[in-house]
């Protein structure tokens, strides 16, 4: 059983909290410490953003995080090193890489899958690669023991949901609104209704993200979702904090969110 599947099994119906941070933000030396800080606060799974020069699906908060990381020369290879470093002290918390396709392509997809698995990565979410384009990507990841994680949108028609449901492993990431990461127009009633409909075709747990900014929203979303993803709000915290306070602030914020969805 993959670490992700084991994580959901251990929760036994409880909701998973999935915090997101960008690798290398605010600087590469802090990422592993911040990952441990997320776990200390109660993170069940960590989504680690791979910085990219052109993050088309991200709002301004995560764009700036990407830019800060890239200023320090953070590459995909370095992100994998960070995960390997994290694994030395944490053998159980699943880590999912969330990134854009081109850095993965530049490493070579088979080589990337192998190196990611060796580093201790558990899943890969490729934001800009729908299943039609690289049919082999999901299989390639699975062969290396990685879960291919897919996005679903409010606009995804039923037949596509079914198709993605057949390929998805670990969990799916339902984008809760029309917009980019960190937007502010989340409609909880609509999301709840959508999740119920998705269950027919999605055999894996359903996580919800994009626009979850506080404990109250997290609680409301967790009524229907199996997992709650929080990104921009945490990245904002990193942006506002000093290097000395960032880890402590993240732990506290994650603990608040975790308490809200319990």
């Amino acid at each position: 059983m993959s670490r992700i599947a084991a994580c959901f099994k251990a929760l036994a119906g409880g909701r998973a909290l999935i915090p997101f941070i960008t690798a290398g933000d605010p600087e590469p030396g802090m990422t592993v410490e911040l990952m441990h800080a997320l776990v200390a606060g109660g993170a069940d799974i960590i989504e680690l953003g791979v910085p990219f020069s052109d993050p088309m699906a991200d709002g301004p908060v995560i764009q700036r995080a990407s830019e800060r990381a890239l200023k320090h020369g953070v590459s995909l290879a370095l992100v994998l090193d960070m995960v390997a470093e994290f694994r030395r002290r944490d053998a159980s918390t699943p880590v999912v890489l969330m990134g854009y396709l081109n850095p993965f392509l530049a490493m070579g997809l088979p080589g990337f899958a192998l190196r990611a698995a060796t580093a201790g990565v558990d899943g890969v979410l490729t934001v800009d690669c729908p299943p039609e384009e690289i049919e082999s990507l999901a299989a390639l990841l699975e062969q290396s023991g990685l879960d291919p994680i897919f996005l679903l949108a409010p606009t995804t028609p039923a037949e596509r949901v079914a198709r993605i449901g057949r390929l998805a492993r670990g969990y799916v990431y339902y984008v809760s609104l029309k917009g980019v990461t960190g937007s502010a127009n989340l409609d909880i009633a609509e999301v709840t209704g959508k999740i119920a409909a998705l269950r027919e075709n999605i055999p894996v747990p359903i996580g919800v993200g994009f626009g979850i900014r506080d404990a109250e929203t997290a609680r409301a979303i967790a009524v229907a979702a199996d997992a709650v993803v929080v990104g921009s709000r945490l990245v904002q915290e990193i942006e506002a904090a000093s290097p000395q306070t960032a880890a402590g602030n993240l732990t506290r914020l994650v603990a608040e969110l975790k308490a809200a969805i319990r």
Binding site: M56, A57, L101, P130, E133, L151, L152, A153, T155, G179
Partner: peptide
């Protein structure tokens, strides 16, 4: 091809 996030596929 059409290498976009799921949020744009329907459009």
């Amino acid at each position: 091809g059409m290498y976009v996030a799921e949020t744009l596929v329907a459009a």
